Simulated scan of single mutants.
Amino acid sequence: MELGKPLRCALSIGLLMGLVHLTAGAATTVTLKHVHGLAFSQDGQQLSIPSHDGLALYRDGHWSKAPGPEHDFMGFSAGRQAIYSSGHPASGSGLANPLGIIKSSDGGSTWQPLGLQGESDFHLLASSFDSGALYVFNMHPNSEMTSAGLYYRLNDGASWQQALAQGIGLDPSALAVHPTDSKTVAVATGSGLFLSSDAGEHFQPLLQNVQVLSVSFSIDGKSLWFGSFNKVPQLSILDLKTHEINALGLPPLNQDAVAYLAQSPANAKEWAMATINRDVYLSQDEGKTWKTIAQAGQTLESVN
């Protein structure tokens, strides 16, 4: 079975990274209209999901809406010291639209502008967990990026450098940066999975002729986790030393696929994933089994 037309449409960058809306009714009622990111807190106790009007939080089996500005977060990536994002400012904030690049060092309570405010909204953005490198796919020229393409900088104060990005197509769906090697970057596309070791100048294929939708480096830097669709949804792990690929377990997914992945910094065996159809899952055993914490956008509370 091929990936259905509605799902294929949702995989375009604009919709895949599109709006998420949180509806706060009762104290713990949170509804996910779309999902476009995942990140664990540094202690591993909390999962954050960026949204149309702030962050959704999952902690101790319960969902809530995070404090802080209710920005419409788009590109979203967490490192050890900070979270980076883009998107559009909350109504009444007085900030320029779009947000350009913003950074939070307190888990999303407050945000610092890093540039390109009022110019760019980056749907694909990835930060290295420890090296401080930041990569973005730029769709339109701005004052610091003269053309569309892949750009990077190695720290918050550096200027943006454009990478040639030779070897990949024009349909990137996900981006990930190695946790310690700032020049190693992976790109998922509609035609495969690609890896660069020279800051995006040249990419080599790791997997071809397969629709790859999501990619994430493990925090130890030894492997790549990625979600793909080849008649059926798949979740796999690739050893970066041997390039051996092994399949991981998935819950039943109907015309769906893995859109986002995140590993807990405090527990290497704990991973989170979110799907195109707004299911969210947690695994405590490196992807062997999964617990559902949201289904079709409806968040689920744990019963103690």
Rank of each mutant, 00 (worst) to 15 (best):
I168R: 02
V212P: 00
I168M: 03
L206F: 08
G200D: 01
A90N: 01
T146V: 10
A96I: 04
L300V: 15
A257C: 10
S264G: 07
M273W: 01
K231E: 08
P172H: 06
A262Y: 02
D198V: 01
I83H: 03
T184A: 11
D60R: 15
A148C: 01
L235M: 14
T184H: 05
T292Q: 04
S173P: 02
D198F: 08
L116R: 13
E244N: 11
I101E: 11
A126Q: 09
F137Y: 12
W225I: 12
E70Q: 13
A262T: 14
M139D: 06
V177H: 09
I49W: 05
Y260Q: 07
S197F: 04
Q45E: 10
D198S: 05
A294S: 15
S173Q: 09
S228Y: 13
N304E: 05
G44C: 06
L213I: 08
S159L: 08
R80Y: 01
P179F: 03
G4D: 10
G200Y: 03
R278Y: 01
S93H: 02
A26L: 14
G92M: 09
D220L: 15
S77Y: 06
G287E: 08
I237P: 12
S159K: 10
T275S: 02
S264E: 05
F76M: 14
L55K: 06
Q298D: 10
M139C: 03
A296W: 00
V20A: 12
L55V: 12
W290I: 15
I102Y: 04
I83V: 11
T289F: 03
L224P: 14
A90Q: 10
A56Q: 07
S120E: 14
I245D: 03
A257N: 04
L235W: 07
Q284N: 14
V35N: 07
K33V: 15
V232F: 15
H243N: 08
L114A: 12
S77F: 04
W290K: 13
A10M: 13
L175V: 03
E286A: 11
T146E: 08
A78I: 08
P141W: 02
G227E: 02
V136H: 11
F203A: 09
A82L: 05
R8E: 00
L240Q: 07
A10V: 10
L57K: 11
S182E: 11
S191P: 01
N209Y: 07
S173D: 02
S302Q: 14
P69R: 11
P67Q: 13
T189P: 00
S302V: 14
S91T: 12
P113Y: 10
T180P: 02
A90M: 06
D279A: 00
A266R: 04
T275L: 00
D106A: 11
F122Y: 14
Q263D: 03
L3C: 07
A96H: 12
G87M: 08
H52C: 01
Q161W: 00
Q298E: 13
E201Q: 15
S196E: 04
H243S: 07
L207I: 15
V210T: 09
T289L: 02
L224I: 13
M17F: 04
S182L: 09
S228L: 11
